[in-house]
């Protein structure tokens, strides 16, 4: 069997914008140069890839030498900041082709930046982006609600959630409220 069989692709975690916005803690799993970098989400799981579906409301091309695109993707709880540069040419061209507003599905890596004045920003480096429909957006809200609740139910029992407790002092009830509010915006 090929060595690829032992390689497990990192799953794309489902996370609402308001939770991702609170993310501050990042670590490298291993000492190797190629070891993956994870963030710990406040609901208590490590993630180096996320999947979000929302509305692309804005898109901007930036840079002269190194062209890259920024965009804003909105879900029922807030905004994801996405970016695609020339290191992800496929993703950049996909994003270039999409005219906002549009429902989009984004697979990408969460990245933490600290601005000169000390604020921490979270952006999503796009691996792929595609236009989807409203049904897919609604399915994503249900999916993300379910997985967030699953994480909150296990909160305090896993290694990652203990770390989240230490770093963020997460209050699970606050996140249940966020999930509830997100769900109530889905129309029947």
């Amino acid at each position: 069997m090929s060595p690829q069989a032992t390689y497990e692709r990192e799953p794309a975690r489902r996370v609402f914008a308001s939770e991702l916005r609170e993310t501050r803690y990042q670590f490298k799993d291993g000492d190797d140069e190629k070891s993956p970098t994870y963030v710990i989400l406040p609901s208590g799981i490590r993630s180096n890839r996320i999947f979000v579906v929302g509305t692309l409301t804005e898109k901007q091309r930036q840079g002269d030498q190194n062209i890259f695109y920024r965009g804003r993707v909105v879900d029922p709880t807030g905004t994801f900041f996405i970016m695609a540069g020339s290191y992800q040419p496929e993703a950049m061209q996909q994003l270039a082709r999409i005219e906002p507003p549009a429902f989009v599905a984004v697979v990408g890596k969460p990245n933490l930046y600290t601005t000169p004045d000390g604020t921490c920003l979270v952006s999503v480096r796009v691996e792929s982006i595609s236009v989807v429909d409203r049904d897919t957006r609604d399915l994503w809200v249900l999916d993300t609600a379910r997985e967030t609740l699953d994480r909150l139910d296990a909160f305090g029992t896993t290694e990652d959630s203990k770390k989240a407790q230490e770093e963020y002092g997460t209050q699970p009830d606050l996140y249940r409220k966020i999930v509830y509010d997100a769900l109530s915006q889905v129309q029947l």
Binding site: L183, S184, V186
Partner: peptide, 15 residues
Amino acid sequence: FQPEELAALLNRAGG
């Protein structure tokens, strides 16, 4: 999309 799933999740979220 299954509306009953939405209802179940709303209940689970505690509201």
